[in-house]
Amino acid sequence: MLEIREEIRASKGYQVLIEMLDSYFGQDYIIRKITYDDLDPTSFDFRLSVDFPKLKGVDVGIANSGPRQMFRMGGDGDISIGIPKIDGLGMLTSGERGDGLFWILGDKKLEWGGQVNKAEEVKYYFDAFKKYYDNL
């Protein structure tokens, strides 16, 4: 399990995700948990449970990263964010109910997250999340 966590931290997706969190929130967040599906050898997706000062238990992660072999060679995937919401339809890594940023904001451009290898998509996605967060 430690090896998988090290691979996650070394991945392009994780590095882009941390770069965005640092860029938008400085050091004002805490990663509580990293989860991944170790039962499915074809997937190397992961989720982080992140606490911010005004919002706890946010899911931030990579989906559609492809098989582990692709991931090791720099497979990208899509960054997505799930936000705790009392009447949310999904279950977040934190154990709370929540919905994706797309559902909460209703912005069609956010539906599939931001592709890790497309800086403008990731920026648009995090701009939307930061605007939502600042208005809490």
Rank of each mutant, 00 (worst) to 15 (best):
E7P: 04
F25M: 05
S49Q: 13
R5V: 05
L105E: 09
R9P: 02
V116P: 06
I30W: 09
Y132F: 05
D76I: 01
Y24P: 03
E7T: 11
D59Y: 05
R72G: 11
K12Q: 13
R68K: 15
K33E: 11
K56M: 01
L55V: 04
N117L: 02
G26I: 00
R5A: 10
G77K: 11
W112D: 04
I83Q: 01
Y132D: 06
K123P: 00
Y14F: 15
M70Y: 10
R9T: 06
S65Y: 04
I62Y: 10
I104T: 06
G57W: 01
L92Y: 08
V58L: 04
I81E: 03
Y124A: 14
P41R: 13
S11R: 10
E111C: 00
V60N: 05
E96T: 06
L48T: 02
G98V: 00
I79C: 07
Y125R: 09
L105H: 05
L2F: 12
Y24D: 03
M20L: 07
Q15I: 03
P84E: 01
M70Q: 15
F46S: 07
P67I: 12
D22N: 14
F52P: 09
F102L: 00
Y36W: 15
D51V: 00
G90M: 07
D99V: 00
K130F: 02
L89C: 02
N64G: 10
P67Q: 14
G100D: 11
V16E: 14
S23I: 01
I62F: 13
P53C: 10
L48E: 12
D87I: 01
Y125N: 06
Y124L: 15
R68Q: 14
E120D: 11
D37Y: 06
E121A: 04
I83Y: 01
P53N: 08
Y29T: 06
N64T: 03
E121F: 04
L21P: 09
G98T: 00
E120F: 02
P67R: 14
A119P: 02
I4L: 07
F102C: 02
G61P: 06
F126Y: 08
N135T: 13
K130A: 04
Y132K: 03
R97L: 01
R72Y: 11
A10I: 04
G57M: 03
K118N: 07
L48N: 08
D51F: 03
E96L: 14
G90P: 00
D40E: 14
R72E: 12
M91F: 11
M91E: 14
K33H: 13
D99G: 01
K130C: 01
I79N: 08
A10G: 09
I4N: 12
V116E: 10
K130W: 03
D38V: 02
L105D: 04
F44C: 15
A10P: 04
I31T: 14
S49E: 15
I86W: 07
D37M: 11
Y124F: 13
E19N: 14
F52I: 06
F44M: 15
P53I: 05
Y125A: 05
G74A: 07
D28V: 07
Y29E: 12
K108E: 10
G57V: 04
I30M: 09
D40M: 08
E111T: 01
D22A: 04
N117P: 02
I81Y: 03
D51G: 03
Q15P: 04
S11Y: 12
M73D: 15
G106T: 00
